[in-house]
Design a protein around this nucleic acid. Sequence first.
DNA 1: ATGGCAAATATGATTTGA
Length: 258
Amino acid sequence: MPAFTIATWNVNSLKVRLPQVLDYMAKNTVDVLCLQETKMTDEVFPEQAFIDAGLHVSFTGQKTYNGVAIISKLPQHDIQRNLPNFEDPQQRLITATISGVRIICAYIVNGQALESEKFIYKMNWLAALQNYLSDELKNHEKLALLGDFNIAPEDRDVHNPEKWEGCNLVSPAERAAFNDMIALGLVDSFRLFEQPEKSFSWWDYRQMGFRRNAGLRIDHILLTETLAKKCTACVIDKEPRRHEQPSDHTPVLTTIDI
DNA sequence: ATGGCAAATATGATTTGA
């Protein structure tokens, strides 16, 4: 059974990070890379750069904010942009089938603060995602949801849980939404394996967050039981975060025998 | 208690992110 590695990376502007993404695909055995926060319209998306590198790509974006893309070594089928059940000007989701695996790439809403309009939007968006997942699972036994969830599922996913208690990204309502996805039968692939203490996928640019390991684990790869059974590894690759001019997020990679 | 960094838009200061 060949190894199939899928990854997620919030690049915080693909314009700035394109060389790093191309370099990453060239130097790593990644079959599928889901990107978030491309921050560009489809008209200016660097599609040709990926094609020239022998890669397949699908994307949906907008000016300044949001935007998602899927990069893959093999062709993509049945590409779907946005949540079909949720009218949304913000470009936050793209789905494709690659090597028989349904890949959902999501940039879940940040939410800003619990009392804000943006938090209401976050919870509504999560409810629509839950419905969408429920539908997709009816048709796809092999499904993976990858992305920036903007949710730290447990206190051990937070560098300083006392200080963060009840805040946006860790609140009970958000964690309940995360657990609703688990209740659909999805598995957090990171927790299938022994992991180092204080493993995070995002670090604040300020106050030397990365050097102090003051981070959060908010980027996740969830798998259906069928894929989880054949999952052999999940790692956070901190190397790109050490790069000059890094994204504030670093890639998470999950390997499955398919 | 506050802002601190980075990117985009715009070309100075504001918004957003998490």
